[in-house]
Design a protein around this nucleic acid. Sequence first.
RNA 1: GGUCCCUUCGUCUAUCGGUUAGGACACAUGGUUUUCAUCCAUGAAAGAGGGGUUCGAUUCCCCUAGGGACCGCCA
Length: 359
Amino acid sequence: MKSKKKRAKQKKLPYIYNRKWRDKSETDTPKEIQPVIRFKSKIEGKSVLKDLVQGNIEIENNTIEDFVILRADGSPTYNLSASVDDHLMGMTHIIRGDDHKINTFKQIQIYDAMNWKVPSFAHIPLIHTIEGKKLSKRDNASTLDDYSKIGIMPIALRNYLLRLGWSYKDKEIFDLDESIKYFNLEGIGKSPSKLDISRIYSINEHYIKNIDENDLFNFLITYCDTFHEKITDLAQKKIKNSLHFLKNKAKTLEDIYKNSKFLINDRVQIEKEDKKLLDETAIKIIKLFSNEIIKLTNFTRETLEPIINDLIKNNNTNFKGVGQPLRICLTGSKFGPGIYDILSALGKEEVSRRLSQIR
RNA sequence: GGUCCCUUCGUCUAUCGGUUAGGACACAUGGUUUUCAUCCAUGAAAGAGGGGUUCGAUUCCCCUAGGGACCGCCA
């Protein structure tokens, strides 16, 4: 058989099992081989699958070969196992990928042969990569874990996947209750859709900014524990208090984590590139700022703003001239949360401590 | 190659015979801003092609093209 198949492929002819043993009796079986058991599939006529998504699909029965249901070792193949299992489990609806369409014609014949009630089928289109091919496990962003790793929240991915290949009017954001309430088979499109990572980021960002802050906090801590580092109770407290501004600049949990690093680590590490930005004037401004804040009893935006404004005026510079050195000294990075957010999150003592280490 | 399926902006999609073809993401420009980002405004951007049916087709039918899935003693 193997050789026949090869020949068919070379000649580019359709291969179909020749049904050689279809009508032989059991006694004709050669003794020296372990036979497989094939299903005596319909040869005449057509079959119609009333698919809940795809509509009616018609196929000539003779294009379905006598498929194997028991292997040589006696174990059942997928099509037999799936049919039996689904029947025994009382399945009423089978919703699965498009790639199972042909199997359905085989499985329906098994149901019929057993006189079982045939369930309803819905074959949903596959998800394609951006290149337009079936998404497979080999693709680097195909598993849930891949998305968790980059800080995509489950609820965001759920929302994205819900809207991929399905729609309800112009609605884009669905919480869990709405997903259940509005989802239906009728809204599913027939053509495969491509996975668009920027859309996933965008929805994730929406959830980061709009869900309850306690929920966000829990997602974040779980994420850090799993993929980065264990966050101490003290650091957790600091993050929780600052989450309202940390989340503003984030598309992913990873972004929030990065923005929180200055709260997690007490030691500030300044990159070489950034160190260059701390020239004489910058250091001078830092010193002046340090001296000013010592006098403060309240350490808030209201009390800090006049100090910074004076520094800008007296040193003939702009906000960047003061804000950037401060940010670098306090967080080790040019980028990050707003300077007043950083200052009040760290508090007067910590700010003084970090600035005193600059020389 | 055979069988089956699909086809509206770059992407996800709305439209169920009559619309300036709508929205969202992404993109571009401008504004706000304190870096990065957010936010706001504006803009560019689509019915694969050809035939029918019809007063009228993105919408219904046919053909062509393009794309996809399946073609295992895998699931």
